[in-house]
Each structure stands twice: as C-alpha cells, then as structure tokens.
C-alpha cells in the first residue's frame, strides 16, 4: 500500500525561508536548503517550495536555489509560485525540481496543463486549487490568495485538470487556511472518491488529529502543512508516529 504523505510547505521570499522558528539545531532557519534538509531528516515525505518573491531578481534567485535544493535533498520536491509559462516550468525542471505546481496560470490558460503533461509527464504537474465556499453552497476556485473568485466550480475544475493530465491536485480551502481548526473532511472525501489522481490536503491543520482526520475521513492521499511545523508546534517525526499508532500507513 502506498503510504500517506506528510509534506511541509516552505515559503521563500527573495531566496530566504519566510517562516520557521524554534529550530535550535539549525544554524540558519532562513536557508531553505537547510530547513528542507532538516524536515527530510525528520521524515518529511516530500517538500513543497513556494516562491512568493515579487521581484524579477527574487525569481532568478529562486531558480538558483532550486539547483541547490536538488543537489542537497534526496526526497522529491515540488516548486510553485509565479509559474505562468512553459519556459518558467522548463527553467525550474532543468534546475532539478521533481514537480511543479500551477494555479492561476492554469485558470487563465487551462491548456498549459496539457502541454506540461505531454512534454514532461503527468507526474510533473501538480494542479493547485484554492477553493472558496460561496453563497448558495458552491465551492469555486479562486486566484490571488482567495481574493478573486473565478467562474470555475471546484468539482468540475478538478475533473477538468485530471482529464488534461495533472498528476495530483493540491486543494486548499480558503475558509480553513490559516485558521488551524482542521480541514473540511467532507469536501475532501467527496473529491477524493470522484478522482483517480491523488489529492493533497492543504491548509487548516492545527493538531495531529486534524491531519489524521483528513487522511482517514477525508480520504486525502497526503497532508500539507506549514505553520504547525515551522513554529515547532509538532515535529514531523512526532506526527508520523502518532498517525502510525492510529493505524494509518505512513513511512517511518
């Protein structure tokens, strides 16, 4: 059986990790390579690096950083943030990224998913969806960190990206993200039972039980979290041990 994955997400601004405290064992928690290696040693199954740089220099630095990550980290990693063209994707793949995540670019131009999948294989393409519950109970995909609603209904859009060749879906509920009150398990369970590709649950973890719930009741294939790891609330090894004790198949 494939193990459920635990994936820490690192935000990178101008080449530096933005969050991350309480790691006395690290010389420099601001160094994305060092922090990623730390998580890998603790048992992270994959890493996600999200470039939040607003400047051209920042994006250039990020590419250089991806090369360093690739040569120091021996588990798969995904990069995302600001990928809008095939050239962006190619540059990051050449630098050594295993997967790239696309969000707004795919909403604006869904065919980019087909192009990426046919050129590099579906395993390279993670479709990130930021969904928001609207009046009338419909979940819609959003862009710009949830500030802009699109006309894409979540389930229809998820099916579409799967058909177009996305290898995985990274779904964040904007209602739950950052609130640390748990993931919307019913939503994940609905989506996971409809799709044949893996779904990564993102945003909302406040406790180990939240993660356990989304992997069991929510049927998610993986859980991505940022704050609870960066602020040292829980160690990854601790989370995985607790999940294993509940009978969840994780790599230990």
């Amino acid at each position: 059986m494939v193990a459920k994955r635990i994936i820490p997400c690192l935000d990178v601004n101008e080449g530096r990790t933005v969050k991350g405290i309480n790691f006395v064992s690290l010389r420099d928690v601001g160094d994305p390579v060092e922090l990623g290696a730390h998580y890998a040693r603790e048992g992270a199954d994959e890493l996600v690096y999200l470039d939040i740089s607003a400047t051209h220099e920042g994006r250039h630095t990020f590419t250089k950083l991806v090369e360093r990550i690739a040569s120091h980290i021996n588990i798969p990693f995904t990069v995302g943030g600001g990928i809008s063209t095939m050239e962006d994707a190619e540059r990051l793949l050449d630098a050594g990224a295993d997967k790239i995540s696309v969000n707004s670019a795919a909403i604006a131009n869904p065919a980019i998913i087909d192009q990426l999948a046919s050129r590099y294989g579906c395993q390279f393409v993670v479709s990130a969806i930021d969904a928001k519950l609207t009046e009338g109970g419909r979940w819609l995909a959003t862009t710009h960190g949830g500030r802009r609603l699109t006309d894409k209904e979540l389930f229809a859009w998820a099916h579409e990206v799967q058909e177009r060749g996305a290898g995985e879906i990274l779904l964040t509920s904007m209602e739950h993200d950052g609130v640390r009150q748990g993931y919307p398990c019913d939503l994940y369970a609905d989506l996971c039972s409809q799709l044949s590709i893996p779904v990564i649950a993102s945003g909302g973890a406040g406790s180990i039980q939240d993660i356990a719930d989304v992997l069991t009741k929510g049927k998610a294939d993986a859980a991505l979290a940022a704050s609870i790891f960066h602020y040292g609330t829980y160690k990854i090894s601790e989370v995985k041990k607790a999940l294993a004790e509940q009978g969840i198949n994780v790599r230990i």
């Binding site: 494939v2 193990a3 395993q123 995985e168």
Partner: peptide, 10 residues
C-alpha cells in the same frame, strides 16, 4: 486504486 502509483511504498 490510484494510477499512476505515486509516492512511498514498502
């Protein structure tokens, strides 16, 4: 059964 088989397996 999810295909591709992607992730960590024993």
């Amino acid at each position: 059964l999810k295909v591709p088989h992607m992730g960590w397996n024993s």
